Simulated assay, not measured.
Amino acid sequence: MLKAERAAYILHRLQELYPETPPPLDHSDPFTLLIAVLLSAQCTDERVNQVTPALFARASTPQQMITLTVDEIREIIRPCGLSPQKAKAIAGLSRILLEEHEGLVPADMEALERLPGVGHKTAGVVMSQAFGVPAFPVDTHIHRLAQRWGLSSGKNVTQTERDLKKLFPREYWNRLHLQIIFYGREFCSARGCDGRVCEICRHCYPKRKNPKLTLKA
């Protein structure tokens, strides 16, 4: 099966399995989404959704957030892990939004990536889910599945993102990003599948005899 054929099958099957793609992180606007995505680094979405209600009850806007000290933010978000760095980033980006962007989250990748604690993946999620701009944020899970499915042999998430953008039509990027994550969690997790177990792996590589070792992002 050629790579283009695998991509076409995967796109079709994921559309069937996940016709709806609700964002996994609870939020009410671009700012609360930005904070939730920042908190999700090395943390589960479920844990983030347990923590953010208390944080947003205190501060759901940049104006409110800067009234909290870094230590206050840190105490609230502690269950998410990496709380010292994340609290400092949340305080810093809130101040920058007020000073440079009139308190609004910019709908611009480069401007987002200049904010403290906001990397390329976080910026991509905000662009796609808050503003509907086509993006293909690649995390370690998407990176793993792209290799298992023979869509990319990239040694890092940057190369994997480029490969996936070439394979799939731009109008599908935002939904497909989430569909791959949903599928990976349900059927093709790091421990639940080794490239020979789940439906898509078996369809794409029916003769694969050995586990598919993936390059870490």
Rank of each mutant, 00 (worst) to 15 (best):
Y183V: 04
L164A: 02
D163A: 00
T160Q: 02
D163W: 05
Y183A: 15
Q179G: 00
F182Y: 08
L164S: 06
P169T: 05
F182W: 14
C188P: 11
N156F: 03
R162E: 12
G184F: 15
V157Y: 08
N174H: 00
I180Q: 03
H177F: 11
G195Q: 14
S189V: 11
L178C: 04
D163P: 01
W173T: 14
N156T: 06
N174S: 02
D163L: 02
G184A: 13
E186D: 04
I181W: 01
R175N: 15
C193I: 08
D194F: 10
L178D: 06
W173G: 13
L178A: 11
R162D: 07
T160K: 01
R170P: 12
C188R: 09
I180M: 08
I181C: 04
S189H: 13
E161A: 11
Y183P: 13
F168T: 02
N174E: 03
Y172N: 10
W173Y: 12
F182I: 02
K166Q: 12
W173Q: 15
H177W: 12
N156R: 03
K165A: 08
R191G: 07
Q179W: 03
L178T: 04
E186W: 00
I180K: 08
L164H: 05
R175P: 09
D163Y: 01
I180C: 02
R175A: 15
G195T: 14
L167A: 06
L164G: 00
G184N: 09
Q179M: 04
Y183N: 10
I180P: 10
V157S: 08
T158R: 01
N156E: 03
W173P: 13
V157I: 10
T158K: 05
E161M: 14
Q179D: 01
G184L: 08
R191D: 14
P169S: 04
S189T: 09
K166M: 11
T158P: 00
R170S: 14
T160N: 05
K166Y: 06
Y183T: 13
Y183G: 06
S189W: 08
Q159L: 14
K166P: 00
E161T: 10
R162F: 09
L178G: 05
A190K: 10
C188I: 11
F187N: 05
A190S: 13
R175Q: 13
A190D: 01
K166L: 11
D194M: 05
K165L: 13
F168G: 03
L178I: 04
C188G: 09
I180W: 10
N156H: 06
K166E: 03
L167H: 04
V157E: 05
K165F: 05
N174K: 01
T158E: 02
D194Q: 12
F187R: 13
R175V: 15
F182D: 04
L167Q: 01
R162M: 06
L178V: 13
D163E: 06
R185M: 03
Q179R: 06
L164T: 05
G184T: 12
L167F: 04
L176I: 05
R170N: 15
G184I: 14
R191W: 08
E186Q: 06
K165H: 04
C188Q: 12
N174D: 00
D194V: 11
C193Y: 12
K166S: 09
E161D: 09
R170F: 14
Y183K: 14
Q159W: 04
L164Q: 03
P169I: 01
E186P: 00
L176N: 05
I181P: 02
Y172R: 11
C193N: 10
E161S: 10
L167C: 07
C193D: 15
